[in-house]
């Protein structure tokens, strides 16, 4: 089990390097804000952790839900706002 999940992790890093080196410098800021939004995937972990025990853990999970959602919603929205501005002649 552990080795499978490690395999997934390492392969994902390689995929990441492959696709991200193809992003042109012009789009590096949207890339950053967009990947930032993707790191908000922690929201999934946050939701899972809210069910923990009804104690402190649940509240930590709920705060995490708020923080991660800021990251996800804000990140994707601001990326869209920027990409809208990139126009051709």
């Amino acid at each position: 089990m552990d080795i499978n999940i490690l395999t997934v992790f390492i392969l994902a890093i390689f995929v990441g390097f492959e696709i991200i080196t193809k992003v042109p410098p012009t789009l590096h800021t949207p890339l950053m804000s967009g990947s930032n939004a993707i790191s908000g995937i922690a929201v999934v972990g946050a939701i899972i952790s809210t069910k923990i025990d009804g104690g402190v853990g649940t509240y930590l999970g709920l705060i995490a839900v708020v923080f991660a959602t800021i990251n996800v919603v804000g990140g994707f929205m601001v990326t869209d706002r920027m990409l809208k501005m990139f126009k051709r002649k």
Binding site: V8, F9, I20, S35, N36, I41, A42, V44, G45
Partner: peptide, 30 residues
Amino acid sequence: GVAAAATGFVLMNNGLIISGALVGASGLIL
């Protein structure tokens, strides 16, 4: 991204691990 991936290992969640790895790689390249 690394933090998200590490959390993925805690929860054994592929979604977090893959996304975290992508963001980790992206940030490192930049």
